[in-house]
Every structure is written in structure tokens, then in C-alpha cells.
Write a protein that binds this DNA or RNA. Structure first.
Lengths: 186, 186
DNA sequence: GGCTCCATGTAAGGAGTTACATGATTCA
DNA sequence: TGAATCATGTAACTCCTTACATGGAGCC
């Protein structure tokens, strides 16, 4: 199968763009940007400087087709996925690799790993409290947003639940840390 | 306090480097690289192309001091943190912001959000099984590695527990997803 | 006529990566 | 003396970001 070879050297963003086009076709690059920007857990900004070059590269690999509505340099372009594109997309989803299972970087966890650089247990407990508050705030923001996807898109909803699970795990962990340092770090 | 101003425009990597120097001083840039590379949850490769420029910038801001052991262009340089550096480090740790609490990007979760692009429930269940296996493998790798930090460094150990908690949350979530699709996605 | 969205694109810059280049030290 | 490890550094590249530039369509 050529589908894996097709995928070599392609980034996550390129594949996500391909996936978004597949789901919403026929759609414009602008639509794709909206999808990324409005996602409850946006990994990318959906910036023009990224999307339009990506679209070009996908078209160059013949994974998508671009059809101009009007002649002329401006105006909406309708994007659709090709059979090769659909194959590459499935291959990308299925082609899961060990590195993808790694714990993803977390700025709060990073700071925790340097917690002994603070002066006192009080400072540490203060930090942990602030971190927990922020995490709880994020959960409260995310839950209704994800819930709004419940009837809209099952996979997006389920992915959102995964994001919430990640945050919930951090919340619990931060509580345990606070307990630990409250008991004078024994 | 100038400590926050000192920190403006500095990246996570720059701050982590500062923190690593603070913990291991006097140490070399090479030592810092080892710390990053050998960390149980390496967010950065510790590549030379990143570290040495970072060291220069930190020295430029007078957050660290560089002392050459031998004269001449080659040979070990001993790094140590300055009082301003220590202040900036504490300010960075404490100065936690809302965006840091966001769910971090996860390639597996990304794929789940496009799961309806697969052809059948069987394919989806197969994917979820593979994802769970990889996550379980990563947990089994990580647990002993983190456990080895237990007596070495409390904060690093606790951060490692946080990484494991994240993976464990994903494992449970993937199990729930598999159940969902096994029940024909009702 | 001007405001707001829709829509496409380029330019410059930031922040890391890999690959390359160099040399010192240690030890068998 | 030769190999491994310690150690520093640069060059080229990747991939994304922000900021800028352009223009059409609907509508009040």
C-alpha cells in the first residue's frame, strides 16, 4: 500500500487539516481555520501563515483537490479530499506509534519538578493551591463546551472527555501534592 | 521587584535551564543537557543547538555566571546562578498563568477526535486497543524510572507521579471509549 | 459610503531540531 | 595509540506564530 509512503514527512497539522477537510468537505481554508480556532482544545491557532501553505502542500501531494468558485486570484476555494487523501488519512489515524503515548508536556508539572527552588513550604503550598484553582477553572470552562458537542460530533465529544480526564487527573494529583507538603513533606 | 520584568520574553526552556543550573551548580552546559535528556519525561531533546544559545542569553541577562576552568576557546565552563537569576527563577515558578492549565496536546486524543473517518467500528476498536496497549507500555516503562527518583529528588519524583497520573487517566479513558464503541456506539 | 464578515495570501520572526565540526580527557 | 566520553559550538532547516496586505459580499 502506498498510503503510508504518502504520509511520510507530513506533520500533525497537515494531517489534521486533511481530516478537517474530509469531515467538512466541500469547505474552504477559512472553514478549516474556524474549526481549529473554535475547537474546545485547540492545539493550533489556525493561523493563516500555517493553513494556506499546508493546503498547498496537500494539493501538491494530490491528497486534496482545490476548486475555485470564481475565476480570478481572489474568492472562495472549495476543498475536497481525494481517494488517496482518504487513504492517507486512515493510515495516519491507525498508524499509531510509541512516541505518541508519551506523557505530554505540562507547564504546571514542569514547575512542580523545580518546587524545591522555592524558599518555604508555605510558598510551595501557595503555588499548589493556585495551580489547583487554575486547573479547576479550566475544567469548569471546558465541561459545558465539550458537552455542547455531545449531540454534534461523537468523536469530538469523546476527545473532549479525554481532555477533561487529563485535567481531572492533574487536579487530583495537585491535591495529593498539597497534602504531602502540608504534612511537612515526609 | 524587577524579577518579573527580568523574566519577560523568556521561554520555558530558558527557565528550565536556569532551574537546572540552580539545582546542579556549579555545572556545565553539558551537565544541563544530560539532565534534560535523562529526565523520565523529557520535554526537550537537550540539543546543543538549543542549550548553548540559551546559556549565552541567560548570561547576557546576568541571570547566570560563566567561569572558564581553562583559558582558551575550549574546555569546561562552570555555570552558576546569580542572585537575580535565583529571583527570576522563583518568580517564574510562582508566576503561574491561566494558559498553563490548558489540556496539553495529545497525538492519541487528536486521532480519537477524527475516529469517525475510519470505516468500521472494528477498525475503531482495533485502534483503541492499540492506543491502550501503547499507553500501558509507557506506564510500565515510566513507573520504575520515576520510582528510582523517589529517594533522589522529591519534586522530580512527584512530577513523575504527575506524568504517570496523566497516562493512567488516558488509559482509563481509552478503556471507556472501547466499551462505548463495543456497545455499537450508542 | 462605510462596517463587518468572509476569504486568501505573504513576510518576518521565534524557538526549537538535527547534523556537522572541533577539541580535551581518560583509560585500556 | 586509539576509542569512548566529556565538552563546546555553528549552520541549516522545520514548523509554527504574529503582523501585514488585499479584496469581495452583504447590509444599514
Amino acid at each position: 500500500m502506498g498510503s503510508t509512503a504518502m504520509t511520510i514527512g507530513m506533520t500533525e497539522l497537515e494531517h489534521c487539516t486533511l481530516a478537517a477537510i474530509s469531515e467538512h468537505q466541500p469547505c474552504s481554508a477559512y472553514d478549516v481555520r474556524q474549526v481549529f480556532a473554535r475547537s474546545p482544545t485547540p492545539d493550533w491557532s489556525g493561523s493563516t501563515g500555517a493553513i494556506y501553505p499546508v493546503i498547498k502542500r496537500l494539493a501538491g501531494r494530490e491528497l486534496i483537490e482545490i476548486e475555485a468558485e470564481a475565476k480570478g486570484p481572489r474568492g472562495r476555494r472549495n476543498l475536497s479530499i481525494t481517494p488517496q487523501g482518504a487513504a492517507a488519512l486512515r493510515a495516519w489515524i491507525i498508524g499509531i506509534e510509541p512516541w505518541m503515548a508519551k506523557a505530554s508536556p505540562d507547564p504546571i508539572r514542569t514547575r512542580v519538578s523545580f518546587l524545591d527552588q522555592l524558599k518555604s513550604h508555605d510558598e510551595r503550598i501557595e503555588f499548589l493551591k493556585a495551580a489547583r484553582k487554575l486547573t479547576e477553572g479550566m475544567i469548569q470552562e471546558l465541561v459545558p463546551e465539550v458537552e455542547s458537542y455531545r449531540s454534534l460530533s461523537t468523536p469530538e465529544y469523546l476527545a473532549g472527555r479525554g481532555a477533561i480526564a487529563q485535567l481531572e487527573a492533574r487536579r487530583v494529583w495537585l491535591c495529593e501534592l498539597a497534602d504531602f507538603y502540608s504534612n511537612d513533606g515526609r
